[in-house]
Design a binder for these strands. Structure first.
Lengths: 133, 133
DNA sequence: CTGGATCCCAATAGATACTG
DNA sequence: CAGTATCTATTGGGATCCAG
């Protein structure tokens, strides 16, 4: 098991996803509908292949994502959020709201703000649908 | 300036606080009312002193916390959340809710769950007061 | 081809000792 | 008390290699 730093729930959570990449993989699945290794690799942030592989493996071990056989192409594999992973989406939404508010010059980022603020639950629901589709 | 990985608001936020320590410092201030270097150092997770110093410096540069002269002991310094840092608290609350739900054996952690779920806004308000006191 | 594993090197994090 | 300095360990980037 992953070693735990303390009994604090915040430390507990950060021990799972407190790095620069894990929540981006969750985002890729829930917002952009990405499912395959190559799609994650092609995301704009340029994650290194070894890091991607190690994060995917860790997230599967942690029960946040699951690795399945692609029903349409039997040889390929796809990744999906588990219920435990879907429960991370409220955190993701709050990060969007924070960034949208404090990113001074990104119109892209600020575009999310109205959406996220006005229709937080709708955005969440859309992400959940996307993640389980 | 910090280098930005992409235009994505989630990547943007994680570039600020996407590590295992930054949000714990925010927590120390907002939940435990800690203000001084030594208090952060004494927190249960055992952060190394150089890491603590570097995180504090970065958070100040990022405008998430501010370093002030202690009004009671002029020679000492205290750290406090800025409004930008206070805006991180909804993220912290969602992490608490996630951890409380998915930490299988911690009564400490699960103790927060009822509070956070039942009275999310009250918890937030209390943290805000604590952070600005 | 896709989905990784491996390797090398650079960069970052961390433990510990020490200092103003 | 509030940090720096130093040294070591771990992580990360990027190229390349390998299996199905």
């Amino acid at each position: 098991m992953r070693d735990q730093r303390s009994e604090c729930p915040i430390a507990y959570g950060l021990d799972f996803f407190g790095d620069k990449w894990s929540l981006l993989i969750v985002r890729d699945i829930a917002i952009y509908g990405r499912r395959r290794y190559g799609q994650f690799e092609a995301a704009g942030e340029g994650i290194a292949t070894n890091i991607l592989a190690s994060r995917l493996k860790q997230l599967v071990e942690d029960g946040i994502i699951e690795k399945l056989r692609d029903p349409e192409h039997g040889s390929k594999r796809i990744y999906r959020l588990t219920p435990k992973g879907i429960d991370l989406l409220p955190i993701v939404v709050e990060i969007i709201i924070w960034s949208a508010k404090h990113d001074p010059d990104s119109p892209v980022t600020r575009g999310y703000l109205h959406r996220a603020r006005r229709d937080r639950d709708g955005l969440l629901e859309e992400m959940r649908r996307n993640a389980t589709a």
